[in-house]
Amino acid sequence: MPMRILTAVLRTIRNSPRLAIGLAILLVMVLIAVLSPLIVKGIGGSTDPLELAAYERWLVPGPGHLLGTDQFGRDVLAMVVSALSVSLQIGAIAGVISTVVGVVVAFVAGYKGGWIDGILSTFTGILLVIPTFPLLIALSAYAKNVSLFQVGVMISIFSWPFAAKTIRSQVLSLRSRPYVDLARVTKARDLEIITTELLPNLLPFIGVGFASSALGAIFGLVGLEVIGLGPGGVIDLGQIIFTAISTGALTLGAWPMFVVPIALLTLLFAALNMVNIGLEEVYNPRLRGVAGE
């Protein structure tokens, strides 16, 4: 079974260059994020480049500091690297939470049907139409000194309904397939049918759900940071952009503070979307450009 999934994944990747490129970019970013403590150490040598007044303030990009320093004398390259790791973390936290919640809700609603489906779908629908961002602003204004994890949870409250909605409709169409009936006359229980008959066929949809919630969370946090309402104690890409704007870094020649985080976010956005589109292309025959399998 694990081998089966692995070969299926490899075959999928081979069939879609878009998916392959997207995954490659993501992989590089994740690697940088995972290795960020080492990279930061390498940049700073004996001093911590993220320490206040580690270097002189507002140094322009040069050999010593590839991206210059900020208003407190911190190395911008080191800041960007560790901020990337924070942004990816928030994406992973919110992505996992909203995917798990979305999948559970979708399977319960879609498979059980009836009044359970009615209640869950109505609730999902209500959450979907609530304007998310103003609520997030209100929430973070109330919650001072929230941790990264708490922000992740807050963001996922609003992002799971998207995943739930799309997966539920797939469950609805899959649960009346003859192979589900066959499993039932072979004495399979509901949970077994869901996990072994339905879930494997829904992996691409779950992947798409995860990618879009992760993306939503990263940009949600950037949005909060840009207006100055983020979790305390951590620097993410949005916060660097916020500092660059509020200190007028561009006028001081410290353009990398503004440009580099935005470029990274754009690249991340492009990569995740390529994965999304790639997955859809592979599993939705109508979108297939060339004849696939």
Binding site: R177, Y179, L182, K187, P200
Partner: peptide, 21 residues
């Protein structure tokens, strides 16, 4: 258990009866 064992189907569609996975 006895009923399930004793009453078994052959369905119409030989394509949809197998989980493609």
């Amino acid at each position: 258990d006895a009923y399930r064992r004793d009453v078994q189907p052959v369905f119409q569609d030989p394509y949809a009866i197998f989980n493609p996975f």
